[in-house]
Computed example of a mutant assay.
Amino acid sequence: MQLTEQQIKSLLAKLPALKTEIQKVIVGQDAILDELLVAFLAGGHCLLEGVPGLAKTLIVKTMSQALQLAFRRIQFTPDLMPTDIIGTEILEEDHATGKRFFKFNKGPLFANIILADEINRTPPKTQSALLEAMQEFEVTYGGQTYPLDKPFFILATQNPIEQAGTYPLPEAQLDRFLLLVKIGYPTEQEEFEVLNRTTGIRNADVQAVISAEEIIQAQALVRQVTINEDLTRYVSQLIRATRPDTSAVSYVKEWVRWGAGPRAGQALILTAKARALLKGRYTVLMEDIHAMAPAVLRHRILMNFRAEAEGINSDKVTEQLIKVVERKGSL
């Protein structure tokens, strides 16, 4: 369905309103909310990392309230099985004929927004059950494939501390997340406001401002945002510069074990388009690429032991590469 100009304007006006509704509950975290909304508009999934008590779960729950979508929370634990999230077959009886048959009972994955809480606390077998859902937007059980409802958005959280008893996500699954978003501590003023808001009797009333159909339309609209050939080539150069075997940058060869693959370039362009649309533009600018590069690349650049020993992380590499690639124009 082709949207009219008036319908597009009406749709775009709801995106800032969506963020405003979320901010009725969430204090600060402006950049974090932008990244989550960008991932949602781009049709991808998000991994949220932060220490306990920084409102990771609350952000997702509030976001679901501002959207007219089904929301489910899955608390990942060491004893969680794949069938606990996908679903299982149960034996039922037809009372009219007396015949028994198996019926698939859908699990919590069959919703629009899934909060996978502390995803690194469950074994790889259960983590891998998410792979098909995240990539193919469907699940398979007993040889039968079941499509998931759209829009479908997985927001997983993990705690960067307390690593005992956890199962780090394999690189293949990390790559399925469009963005890795890191949440830090609030500022002094923001923390003061949090204390004021959360220790009284008043609760913010979050209104749903956008429907599932409108979200699907917005996601289709993201694909129509234009990006010129020079910026596409810049993204290609930036991604290729992260690979130590082909990069001309000395510190990439020194610090990086594995660079980002082609999916990173796709993610960077798509999220840049989504950010442009969120800002009310139909064309990608360099600032969109620079803004999204850290969240796109931080889980796709694998550092070596020397970098870890020196305290060099992938964000630092991305920051330096942005400067070098932009300055030289080609690597």
Results as ranks from 00 to 15, higher is better:
residue 7 Q to C: 12
residue 11 L to A: 04
residue 15 L to P: 14
residue 17 A to L: 13
residue 18 L to R: 10
residue 18 L to N: 12
residue 22 I to P: 03
residue 23 Q to G: 06
residue 25 V to C: 11
residue 34 D to C: 01
residue 40 F to P: 06
residue 41 L to P: 13
residue 45 H to C: 11
residue 45 H to E: 09
residue 47 L to C: 04
residue 49 E to I: 00
residue 50 G to C: 00
residue 57 T to Y: 03
residue 66 A to T: 10
residue 67 L to Q: 14
residue 73 R to P: 01
residue 76 F to L: 03
residue 81 M to G: 02
residue 81 M to C: 04
residue 82 P to V: 05
residue 84 D to S: 08
residue 86 I to Q: 05
residue 87 G to E: 01
residue 88 T to P: 00
residue 92 E to Y: 02
residue 100 R to S: 07
residue 115 L to R: 12
residue 118 E to L: 06
residue 123 P to Q: 08
residue 125 K to F: 12
residue 130 L to K: 00
residue 131 L to M: 15
residue 137 F to H: 15
residue 137 F to R: 15
residue 138 E to R: 14
residue 139 V to D: 06
residue 140 T to Y: 10
residue 140 T to V: 11
residue 145 T to V: 11
residue 149 D to W: 02
residue 152 F to Q: 12
residue 152 F to M: 03
residue 152 F to R: 08
residue 153 F to A: 03
residue 159 N to T: 00
residue 170 P to Q: 09
residue 175 D to I: 02
residue 179 L to R: 03
residue 185 Y to I: 00
residue 190 E to D: 13
residue 191 E to T: 02
residue 193 E to H: 05
residue 196 N to A: 10
residue 200 G to L: 10
residue 207 Q to S: 12
residue 209 V to D: 14
residue 209 V to H: 14
residue 211 S to H: 00
residue 218 A to G: 12
residue 222 V to A: 04
residue 225 V to H: 04
residue 227 I to G: 11
residue 228 N to P: 09
residue 234 Y to Q: 06
residue 236 S to I: 07
residue 237 Q to H: 14
residue 240 R to V: 14
residue 241 A to C: 10
residue 241 A to M: 06
residue 243 R to V: 03
residue 248 A to H: 14
residue 248 A to Q: 15
residue 258 W to S: 11
residue 261 G to N: 14
residue 262 P to I: 04
residue 262 P to Y: 09
residue 267 A to T: 07
residue 270 L to H: 06
residue 272 A to W: 00
residue 280 G to L: 04
residue 282 Y to D: 14
residue 284 V to P: 01
residue 286 M to P: 10
residue 288 D to G: 09
residue 289 I to Y: 11
residue 295 A to H: 10
residue 296 V to C: 10
residue 298 R to C: 00
residue 301 I to M: 08
residue 308 E to Y: 05
residue 313 N to P: 08
residue 313 N to C: 04
residue 316 K to L: 15
residue 317 V to M: 11
residue 320 Q to F: 12
residue 322 I to E: 05
residue 322 I to D: 01
